[in-house]
């Protein structure tokens, strides 16, 4: 009961404290919108102004976001690995994995084969669609991150498809980890190119060049890094479950 009481008090207190923010009813300030409408496409080269901000004006935040994702993937996978390594040494109260009945095992194998046949084909298609979303983010909705997530689901499908058969090298956990850390390193190199050319950290590095090319490069690198990272996480979760 004290938990319920605490929850009620927390909710009431939060409602009181945040009420002025929800009651706020002033006209939306148009400074940023007006500026971007006038100059955004010229300065960044992207017709999609959200992409212009995400990978141009505020690419620094996006870098932080990819770092958060990197930490989450590294941390979660590390915990899963530590969990399986430490499990037998756990003192007291360690639950025993419930053994699956043979019938359920057979049924699930049957199902897995069906999924494998379908998803192996589907995975390739999804991967290509992901690449499209990734590379055309500057003109249409989408971009590196969204494309990366689509790529990740393609990877998951490929991993499902390679159940039973020889696993595709692309979706091996080790390779995905390699691709992710390489993607992160390339992202940092791309960010630092501006330092070398004197335009500053995270600035489009080429003098006089079309800034949109920098956004496309960032989109591609982020997409590959995110796709590999999330794919790695999902593949690790799927394989742990199967183990």
């Amino acid at each position: 009961m004290p938990t319920r009481l605490a929850a009620l008090a927390s909710v009431l207190a939060a409602a009181f404290a945040l009420w002025p923010l929800f009651a706020l009813d002033v006209a939306w300030p148009g400074t940023v919108r007006d500026y971007l409408e006038a100059k955004g496409t010229v300065e960044s080269g992207a017709m999609n102004l959200v992409s212009a901000i995400y990978l141009g004006y505020r690419a620094y935040d996006t870098l932080g976001e990819t770092v958060v994702l990197l930490v989450a993937v590294t941390g979660a996978i590390g915990m899963m690995a530590a969990g399986s390594a430490l499990a037998p040494r756990e003192a007291g109260g360690a639950p025993v994995e419930p053994a699956r009945s043979p019938r359920r095992e057979a049924r699930s194998r049957q199902r897995t084969e069906l999924i494998a046949a379908l998803s192996g084909k589907l995975g390739a298609v999804i991967l290509i669609f992901g690449l499209y979303v990734m590379l055309y983010g500057h003109v249409s909705p989408g971009g590196g991150f969204q494309g990366g997530v689509v790529v990740a689901s393609g990877i998951v499908f490929l991993a499902l498809g390679s159940h039973g058969a020889a696993p595709s090298p692309l979706v091996g956990a080790r390779n995905l980890a390699r691709i992710e850390s390489a993607g992160f390193a390339i992202l940092l190199v791309a960010a630092c190119l501006g330092v070398a050319s004197g335009k500053g950290f995270l600035a489009p590095p080429l003098p006089g060049g079309d800034p949109v090319s920098f956004i496309i490069v960032l989109n591609a690198v982020i997409g590959i890094k995110v796709g590999a990272g999330i794919g790695l996480l999902c593949v690790a979760m799927l394989t742990e479950e199967a183990a």
Binding site: P141, G143, Q146, V149, V150, L233, M237, E240, E241
Partner: peptide
Amino acid sequence: KAPDVAITEAAVGAGVSTVVFVWAIRA
């Protein structure tokens, strides 16, 4: 009028986070 956010929410919220939740529940 936020197509980018819509795509991200669908991919991340309905996709990735569901996978993670289902994994956690099965584990």
